[in-house]
Amino acid sequence: MPAVIFKSRVYYGIMAEECKRTIVGRFLKQRPQIDKIRSSFRELISMKGSYKIGAYDNHNVSLDFSIEEEFKNVWFRRVIEIEGMQMWLQKWSPDFKPKEDIPVAPVWILLPGLPFNMHNWHYVKQILSSVGTPLALDVATASKTRPSMAKVRVEIDLLKPRIESVWVGNEDENSPLKGFTQKLEYEAILKYCKHCKKLGHNMLNCRVLERLRAKETLAYDGKEVVDNLEGAQLNNKESANANEMEIAKNIQPTLVDTQVNTNENAKDQEEEAEKNNDSGPVLECGQAQNKLKSVKVKSPCMAERTKNKKKKNNKTKKMLKKKSTVIFKLV
């Protein structure tokens, strides 16, 4: 990819001079039509010199002035209402980005108790040069109608810490160094959000940051709920395993006792069987009972009767055989 590199002193110096009297007007919502912005601006502010208003995108417009004094008068307003919408004004910079506000703004700085002989632009701008870029004196200071205090418009970087006081001294070859501490008071400083890089609010009441935190909180709560559920499931599983182990411990002695009793019963049966083998054949319980039922004990009288009955039957059979024999003789 081809590349073009400029020197910083050229980029921020000579090239920036082309837009040194350019202001960027930003609308928080979608801006009105460019023709309505031009007509409203013409009605609000009267200009002696020429100026141009052009559309940059749906939220930003550029205002370019030919006279330095008119450029400052518009920029010092900071906000202009057009078509019922606020247009925030900021000085153009080579670092301008359409979706970010430049953290530079003009503010009034008060110098209470400043010696009256120093109410002069040449001296005041030296006192405030470490604070920012001095822009102009207010009318009362310039006309020296308020000797108790000087008031100066200064362009400051909103991201830098505020300087609350400046030491002002004097010395020469014949007198030692002496001086005083000059207190500085800032009036109506614009807020700047470091998160979304917008003017008008800080990080404490940034809506973008609030939505981001709400999402993070919701995600954290969801993760915490999942972790709690997983922890509860794990605890339930551990409890179930512990209960199973406890049941197994309780059942094992019972099984051992049962096995011992079974072994003892089997041993007793084996001993009983050995005794029965010694006295004769052993019958099973059911067979023994049936055998006992089927056995009839015969008395001596019954034995005799049975014997006589058998003899009688044998005799009857012989007689029948004789009677059943037929012999034919020839005549």
Rank of each mutant, 00 (worst) to 15 (best):
K307C: 02
N308F: 12
S324H: 08
K197S: 10
M87I: 07
D221K: 08
D221H: 04
E17F: 11
D257I: 01
W92D: 14
C285M: 15
V104D: 03
V226H: 02
G231N: 15
S39F: 06
I23R: 05
P253C: 02
P161W: 11
T262R: 03
E185H: 04
P2C: 04
P253T: 06
A242Q: 06
L209Q: 01
E230W: 10
P103L: 03
M302P: 04
P103S: 02
L111C: 09
D138Q: 02
C206E: 00
P2M: 05
G113M: 00
W167E: 08
D257T: 00
K91Q: 15
V74W: 00
L110G: 14
L292N: 12
R31T: 06
D172H: 03
A16I: 11
R305Q: 13
L89M: 11
G113W: 03
S62P: 06
F96M: 01
G286T: 15
N235T: 02
S39E: 11
E224M: 11
D227L: 14
A240C: 00
Q289I: 15
S299M: 05
L114S: 03
E164H: 04
C193S: 04
A232Y: 08
C285L: 15
C301R: 14
G280S: 05
K309L: 07
Y11A: 06
L212I: 03
F27V: 00
S165T: 08
Q90L: 11
A16T: 02
I102D: 05
E238Q: 08
P253E: 01
Y12M: 09
W75R: 09
K197Q: 14
Y123F: 15
G231Q: 15
T262G: 04
S294K: 02
C301Q: 15
G84R: 08
N205V: 10
A3V: 03
E81L: 06
A232P: 11
K197R: 14
L89S: 12
M15G: 00
L137H: 08
K178N: 14
E43P: 07
D95A: 11
N313H: 05
G222V: 05
S129M: 10
N290R: 15
E272N: 10
K293W: 01
K7N: 02
P112W: 00
F96C: 10
V154L: 01
W121T: 06
Q252Y: 01
E264K: 13
L229W: 09
A136E: 13
A3Y: 08
K99D: 12
V154Q: 13
L184M: 01
M15W: 06
S239L: 03
E171R: 03
E272C: 03
